[in-house]
């Protein structure tokens, strides 16, 4: 019988090369085949197409709040009173678990727009409750102030401010 796998330099055989080349190609092919099965769980095109929400601010009285849906999540649109704004601005940042000045959380101080999902474990906080005049999460007792910043309780961070812009004085586009 003839030798089919001649020894070559450094002890590397032709077979070794073929084995690694075939195995490598197989691994790449398998990874490519698996990718669609993973990717399909990401948001589909129709979900991505719903990624902005426009809100008409007319009719939201000072001191009141509406909840709109953006990407399937509640977004609080709060028309703050002078008192709310003062309370939010008058806080010593050193007292905050997640220090952030109110000015960085609003475009127009009258309007506070934020995702109404507690940063602890995802419940929707209740307005006008809690120790700081803002929101209170009933699930695990997180208190948020009139700027939506975490003040007391287990939540690690302030309520999230979504990307939004003023289309004109009375219309915003979230997302």
């Amino acid at each position: 019988m003839t030798t089919t796998t001649p020894e070559e330099e450094n002890g590397v055989k032709r077979r070794d090369f073929l084995y690694i080349a075939a195995g490598g190609l197989g691994a790449v092919g398998t990874a490519a085949a698996i990718w669609p099965f993973i990717s399909q769980m990401n948001p589909s095109a129709d979900v991505l197409a719903l990624s902005t929400t426009e809100v008409d601010l007319d009719g939201i009285e000072t001191g009141s709040e509406v909840t709109v849906v953006w990407q399937g999540k509640p977004v609080f649109v709060r028309h703050r009173t002078e008192e709310d704004i003062e309370r939010a601005e008058d806080v010593d940042l050193a007292d905050l678990p997640d220090p952030e000045p109110d000015s960085e959380r609003v475009i127009n101080p009258e309007w506070l727009i934020m995702v109404g999902i507690c940063t602890h474990l995802g419940c929707v906080p209740l307005k006008g409750q809690g120790d700081f005049g803002g929101w209170f999460c009933p699930c695990h007792g997180s208190h948020y102030d009139t700027s939506g910043r975490i003040r007391k309780g287990p939540a690690p961070a302030n309520l999230v401010i979504p990307p939004y812009e003023f289309l004109n004085d009375s219309n915003i586009k979230i997302g």
Binding site: Q40, S44, A45
Partner: peptide, 24 residues
């Protein structure tokens, strides 16, 4: 994961798979 077994939605959910779902 993407299909809806209801007479009003089944056909459209298959088209949704074909057009919208990644690699559907």
């Amino acid at each position: 994961m993407h299909y809806t077994p209801h007479v009003d939605m089944a056909f459209n959910s298959v088209e949704h798979i074909m057009r919208d779902v990644n690699y559907g």
